[in-house]
Simulated assay, not measured.
Amino acid sequence: MPHKPPTSPAFLEKAEGLACVRSVDPHRVVLLSPSSDQPVILSGTSAAIWAILNDVLTTQEVVERIAHEYRVDPSEVSSDVEQFIENLVDQQLLVTRAPGRQ
């Protein structure tokens, strides 16, 4: 069963054991996971979201940072960001952690 980001504020963290390779293009990232034989290539906004996830944040905080970076209202990017995060969780590239848990 896929692990979807909870609607309550849970923190997002990059999964352990990932290899992250930045290409010459700063807006492109390749992820290699020990749980998959296929690399995941992120570019554009996806790479920007991945960079933001260097901090441990909630989904809402990611939405707010992307909206600020692209100078749009959070409601304009919320659905796309949430879907992207859900995909990363499903691919075991991101994990969620309840507040207060280490």
Rank of each mutant, 00 (worst) to 15 (best):
V89P: 01
L12Q: 03
R97H: 03
S75G: 01
I66P: 09
V72D: 03
A98H: 13
D37H: 08
E69S: 13
C20P: 01
S43T: 14
F84A: 14
P26N: 10
S79H: 12
L42K: 04
A19L: 09
V89F: 03
L12M: 10
T59A: 15
P74S: 05
V56N: 12
V24M: 13
A10W: 08
V24K: 05
D90M: 07
C20S: 07
T96K: 03
F11H: 01
D80Y: 01
V30K: 09
V40M: 07
V29M: 10
L53S: 02
P9W: 04
A67D: 00
D55T: 03
S43L: 05
L18R: 09
H27D: 08
P6E: 11
Q91L: 15
P34I: 10
P5R: 12
R65D: 08
V40A: 11
E64N: 14
T7A: 06
G100A: 02
A15V: 09
E13D: 05
E69T: 08
P2V: 13
V40C: 13
F84M: 15
L42D: 06
P6W: 04
V21Q: 11
G44V: 12
P74R: 13
P39S: 04
L31D: 05
S46D: 15
M1V: 05
L12R: 01
L32A: 05
T96Q: 15
D25C: 14
E82I: 06
H68C: 11
P6K: 02
